[in-house]
Write a protein that binds this DNA or RNA. Structure first.
Length: 365
DNA sequence: TCTGGGGTCCTAGGACCC
DNA sequence: TCTGGGGTCCTAGGACCC
């Protein structure tokens, strides 16, 4: 009898393979088999990063988040495609629609991945195979699926047999499967944390699993230190969270050349504010905190924020606050990036007649 | 080697209130 | 005159994820 039959819960992590590139290839089939890079722009010498790389391009050491200039050096003949987020959003919605047929307990964790709670299914592996077939039939896209008794192991498992993988991972099998991989394999261990761990002589997942709790807690803080060791041991109690509410909305832009001109900054700021407010309106939300983000040369990032008493998404109001924050900021170097965000969001309580808000109605009653 | 854009969560200090 | 303890809110920065 398969061990998974004894698991109290069964989670699937569905991860689309080279998602942005694969979506592009649906309409550019002639590019199949070639190194393809989806990036922030098409000028390989301009500022930007790789958003996705085909498996052919990955063989040259090109991967997402890599600076475009470096990617171009590593693989000069790669076809560079500009990102088309609207296209990827539509494809993602199609994929998620298929996934919902397999469980209503689904957590969308990005455009290209989701967790499904399949607890209670007598044949989870067969369900996963069917899911892969259905996604492919509906969208033409390939995904990898990890099956495990918790979200963490499911996520690790989905990556083990990419592309087009289907992998089942038990807690007992974790160290055998990934024990000698770098600790950064564990979600939550990024570059900075990996450096701190290396200071303790911890480099692999197995090292982290075997580490002393007090030492970890001194290096990383009590919460993170304990949590990461638990993860390295395959322990994870997080449930699938459905229907998350957005907590902030922001826009930012990196200038192709650093900016010192005040009028350019103000003009850009106004566009960012308008876009954020349109986004808030589309989601019927308003917010109380306006945050200005500034990145100065060479790469120093700062934020300034102001919180008001009443939620707003009035562009005039948000613009006035953003301009005030910008005016008060001491610019001692050229500006590389400018951003605007609104947080402390609340659902609109307006238009009660046509679009009732539950909480508000309860008060009315 | 040069580092996008959209998010989430955590920490830490200070203000303020009871 | 010296000085509690807890709670919430706000701000700024940092780390991380996709």
């Amino acid at each position: 009898m398969a061990a998974w039959r004894a698991w109290p819960r069964i989670f699937a992590h569905v991860d689309m393979d080279a998602f942005f590139v694969s979506v592009e290839l649906l309409r550019r089939p002639e590019l199949r088999g070639q190194p393809v890079i989806v990036a922030t722009g098409t000028d390989a010498t301009a500022r930007g990063v790789v958003m996705a790389a085909s498996y052919e391009a990955r063989r040259f050491g090109v991967h997402s988040a890599l600076p475009l200039a470096v990617a171009h050096r590593r693989c000069p003949r790669a076809v560079l495609l500009p990102r088309n987020l609207e296209l990827y959003r539509r494809a993602s919605a199609q994929v998620m629609e298929v996934l919902r047929r397999f469980s209503d307990r689904i957590e969308v964790a990005g455009l290209d991945e989701a967790y499904l709670d399949l607890s209670g299914s007598p044949t989870p592996k067969a369900r996963a195979r069917q899911l892969k077939r259905d996604v492919r039939a509906a969208t033409g896209l390939i995904c990898s699926v990890g099956l495990a008794p918790n979200k963490l192991l499911a996520k690790i498992a989905s990556d083990l047999e990419k592309p087009d993988g289907l992998c089942l991972l038990e807690p007992d099998g974790m160290l055998e499967a990934v024990g000698d991989r770098p600790a950064t394999l564990i979600p939550g261990v990024g570059e900075r944390t990996a450096e701190r761990l290396a200071g303790l002589g911890i480099r692999t997942v197995a090292d982290l699993a075997a580490a002393e709790d007090p030492a970890l807690q001194r290096a990383l803080g009590p919460r993170l230190g304990h949590a990461l060791r638990e993860r390295a041991r395959g322990h994870d109690e997080r449930p699938v969270v459905t229907g998350r509410e957005r907590k902030s909305e922001s826009r930012e832009t990196t200038f192709q050349a650093d900016v010192t001109d005040a009028a350019t900054l103000r003009g850009t700021l106004d566009e960012l504010v308008d876009s954020v407010c349109r986004g808030l309106a589309a989601g019927a939300r308003s917010g109380r905190t306006v945050t200005l983000k500034i990145r100065l040369r060479p790469f120093r990032t700062h934020t300034r924020s102001k919180t008001i008493d009443e939620p707003t998404r009035d562009p005039e109001r948000v613009r006035a606050i953003a301009r005030e924050l910008l005016a008060a900021f001491e610019l001692d170097a050229p500006v590389r990036l400018l951003g605007v965000g609104v947080s402390s969001l609340a659902a609109d309580a307006q238009r009660l007649g046509s679009a009732p808000v539950q909480g508000a109605l309860a008060i009315e009653a």
